[in-house]
Design a binder for these strands. Structure first.
Lengths: 236, 236
DNA sequence: ACAATAGTGTCTATGAGACAATATAAA
DNA sequence: TTTATATTGTCTCATAGACACTATTGT
C-alpha cells in the first residue's frame, strides 16, 4: 500500500483552471443541431469547438454555464433546459495548462441565429451529424457525443422533449422532436394516445392552430410531470 | 447585455483547487451504508465528512477517485463500481478558498472495516439513514443525498445491483440488495423469474450453496448486460 | 414430519403497438 | 372532391404482479 500524505497543505494546493463547456442542442430544419464556435485563439485557432469559458472567481458553476449560453446565443434569457453533464479533467486535455471542464447540456427550442458581428460572432448552429464528422478542438468530440447520448436517453423517461419546443406547442411538434432526436419514425396515433394519457405531461390550452392542410391541432403547454412512467420507448 | 471580455488571458486564469469526494456505498447488516471519515483538521475538525482529497497535478479525475477509495478502505483493488456523480462548486462551499469538488459514486460489496491505526484510521461504514441525521462537513449532505438517489435510480434500469454483491452470488443475495437499497419488499418468485429471463444479466456457475434450511441456491456471476430492458420497477 | 428457502407454473389486468375509422382543414 | 393532418377507437399480443405449487434442504 503506497504511503500517502495525510492531506495536502491547503495553502499549497495544486492550481487548476476550471471552465464550463456547453453542449447546446436544438431541433432545427428536421435535424438535431449543436451550437459551435470557431476558435479565434491558440490552441486550435480556426477550429470548431464547443462554446465555453473560464468560471469566474465568485461565480457558481451553473451561473457560469447560463452566462456562457446567454453570451453565445445573444439572448438574455435562454428558454429550455440546462443541466450538468459531467466533468472532464484528463491531465493533457489542454496543452496550455491543467484545465478541468464542467460540461453542461442545454436543450432549447429553435433560436435565431447568433448575430454575426456581436460578441458571439463566431457561433453558429451546426447539425450534430455534421459536427461529429468534423475535427473538434480539445476533447470536445467526446463531450458532444456524451451530451447527445444523454439527451437521447432522457427523452425516454422524462418530459424534456418539451424543452425543444416553444412554450406552446402541438403534439405533432413534440413528436417531431422525438423523431429527429431519435432518428426514428413514430406512429402519430399511438404517440398521441401515450402523451395525452400520461397525467401531468401536457396541459391543454384550449386553443388550436392550423398549419397547412389537415385538421387544426390543439395547443398544449408543458405540465408539471418531469418523469414519465411508463417511459416512451425508442425501439419499434 | 453585459459586455463580456472576449476571453480570459490564459495566463491569468482564476485559480481553483480541485478535489474528489467519494460517496462509497455498500450493503451491510441489512442496511445501505456509506463510508465516512472524521475530519482531523480545520475546517469542520471533528465532524463527519465524505472521504476525499485534492487531485494531484498530473492525475486523472477517475484515477484520483480510485486512489482515494483505495486509501480510505485500505484495499489495493476495491471491487464494485465507480462512476462520476457530479461536480459541486458553489463559491462559498469551502471557507478556505475556491474549491470545486468532483463527486464520485462507488458501489461495493461488504468490505472489511477500515483498519484503525492505518492511514484511513478515521474511516468507518455508517448507515446512510444515520449519516443523514448527522451534521456533515461542507455540502456533503447534499452529495450523499444525490449519490443515494442516483444509486436507487440506477438499480431500476441497470445491472449495477451486482456491484453490491461478491463475485459469485445467489438470487436471494441480489434481491436483498434491491430490498435494502429501495427499502421495499420484493416478491422472491417474480424477482427470480425477472432476473433470470433478462438475457445477459446473470451467468450460471453451475454450482450452488446452502445456507441454513431450505433448498440450495444456485450461484451466479454478473453478466455482460449493463442496461436492463425492461427495467425492474420500484413500486409494488 | 415440519419449517424454511429455492424455483416453476398459472392467471389476470394492463399496456404497447398495429391499424381502422372519423374530424377538419387547405388546395 | 382530393389530400393531408389530427384525433379517437379497436384489436391483439406481451408482460407485470398475484399467488398456487413443487423441490430440496436443516431441525
Amino acid at each position: 500500500m503506497p504511503p500517502s500524505p495525510p492531506d495536502y497543505d491547503a495553502a499549497a494546493f495544486p492550481p487548476f483552471a476550471v471552465t464550463v463547456d456547453l453542449i447546446a442542442l436544438t431541433v432545427r430544419d428536421d435535424a438535431l443541431q449543436a451550437l459551435l464556435v470557431t476558435r479565434a485563439e491558440e490552441p486550435f485557432a480556426g477550429e470548431l469547438a464547443l462554446p465555453g469559458g473560464f468560471v469566474r472567481p465568485d461565480e457558481d458553476l451553473n451561473a457560469a454555464a447560463a452566462r456562457e449560453l446567454a453570451e453565445e446565443t445573444g439572448l438574455h434569457q435562454v428558454p429550455g433546459h440546462l443541466e450538468q453533464l459531467g466533468t472532464y479533467g484528463a491531465p493533457d486535455r489542454d496543452p496550455r495548462m491543467r484545465v478541468v471542464s464542467v460540461a453542461y447540456l442545454a436543450m432549447a427550442p429553435a433560436l435565431p441565429d447568433p448575430e454575426p458581428g456581436g460578441d458571439a460572432s463566431s457561433a453558429a448552429w451546426v447539425p450534430v451529424a455534421k459536427a461529429l464528422e468534423s475535427e473538434l478542438a480539445f476533447d470536445h468530440r467526446t463531450l458532444l457525443t456524451d451530451g447527445v447520448a444523454r439527451a437521447r436517453a432522457k427523452l425516454e423517461y422524462t418530459s424534456l422533449a418539451a424543452a425543444f419546443c416553444p412554450p406552446e406547442f402541438t403534439i405533432s411538434e413534440l413528436r417531431h422532436v422525438y423523431e429527429v432526436v431519435w432518428g426514428a419514425r413514430i406512429d402519430p396515433r399511438n404517440f398521441h394516445r401515450k402523451v395525452t394519457s400520461t397525467a401531468g405531461f401536457l396541459i391543454e390550452t384550449g386553443r388550436s392552430v392550423t398549419d397547412g392542410p389537415g385538421r387544426p391541432a390543439a395547443l398544449y403547454r408543458s405540465g408539471p410531470t418531469a418523469v414519465l412512467v411508463p417511459p416512451l420507448t425508442r425501439e419499434p
